[in-house]
Simulated assay, not measured.
Amino acid sequence: MKETRERARELMKGYCRVCKVCDGKACAGEVPGMGGLGTAASFKNNVTALAGVRLNMRLVHDVSAPDTSVSLLGLDLAMPVLAAPIGGVSFNMGGGVSEEEYIEAVVGGCRDSGVIGCTGDGVPPVIHESGYAAISASDGHGIPFIKPWEGPELAEKLDKARTTGCSIFGMDVDAAGLVTLRQMGRPVSPKTPAELEKIIEEVHGWGGKFILKGIMTPDEALLAARVGADAIVVSNHGGRVLDHTPGTVEVLPEVAAAVRGRLAILVDGGVRDGADVLKMLALGADAVMIGRPVSVAAVGGLREGVVKYLAALKGQLIQAMVLTGSADIASVTPRVIWNG
């Protein structure tokens, strides 16, 4: 990964420093770009809170080759990891590669690695168009996320997404805080339970599943379950829409406890290595989404870079499972977390 990161640092200059530790400090306030909004407290809280979770090391057991595979939303994955929906290469990542090259690397690299990539949405149209093309080229193996647009744009993009052959659709309702889109004449806004229920009913009518991203409280997790969502993502949008939120791992246990067994629970925010994946699983997640590190791998090494990053991540997860006595994903429980 060293060459991939060095290449990404060169191509993303002025937009991302590809820091040794991606913690939001050097890029605070750089939105657009890869930073966090305002003071970047939300971005930094994601990283520091997760780093503060400690693991119980156990080595008196027979676990030497743990099974990282998992079934999620009808998918069989090599590990409980998804690439988060991130787009806008020209204004967020420096434009060193094209939007088409970038998202093909994410979607294709995830498929090669036995996991699944999500695609983003926004302005200009090339963001969602490239994402949909990549999913189509990958035989529907991808998850398109659509922003909570006002007016007919939401329904139009859902219809377009359906033509990719995908079986899962997502909405990053946390993008409702992107005021720049309203300033560009393309407003996004929060959605009422009734609005979400109507959207989800339509997706279910197609035989698809629906993920609602941007849940940070137990009451909204319960609302998501009530309106029929198949999964939620505990997420503060990478700290890019509201300053001073808690880190996602801080709210994950309470959110998961509220809806466990009713829908799939995903989480993003500060996940950097396999040990971080293990922590999130132990605290209630069924799978994790990873954003910035996948973007760096895609810009710096395209499809091969994504494959290399995910291979390294899987190796780290296996190592962490061995060192905590976790034979498979189902056995990753709060017992692996140190509560001293």
Rank of each mutant, 00 (worst) to 15 (best):
T119H: 06
K44M: 15
F43N: 00
C110A: 14
V126L: 04
E30G: 01
M57L: 15
G74K: 08
H141P: 00
L82Y: 15
G29R: 02
G140L: 08
V63W: 02
K44V: 12
A40N: 01
T119I: 12
P80W: 05
I143T: 05
G117I: 10
G117R: 07
N56Q: 08
S138I: 00
T39N: 13
G122S: 09
S64L: 03
S69V: 01
E30M: 15
G36W: 00
F145K: 03
G114K: 10
P124M: 11
D112I: 02
Y102L: 07
G74T: 06
A26V: 14
L82T: 11
H141Y: 03
V97E: 06
P32D: 09
G108A: 09
L37S: 06
I116Y: 10
V106H: 13
L37W: 14
T39E: 11
S90W: 08
V31T: 13
E99G: 01
M93D: 00
G52A: 07
N45W: 02
H128L: 11
R111T: 10
D121P: 04
Y132F: 15
G35K: 10
V60F: 10
K25P: 00
A51I: 07
G35W: 01
K44E: 15
G140H: 07
L73K: 12
V60K: 08
S98K: 06
G33Y: 01
L72A: 08
P32C: 10
N56W: 03
M34F: 03
I146R: 11
F43S: 08
D121E: 14
G52I: 04
V126R: 13
V123E: 13
C110P: 05
A105M: 10
A41F: 14
G33D: 02
V115I: 15
G142V: 03
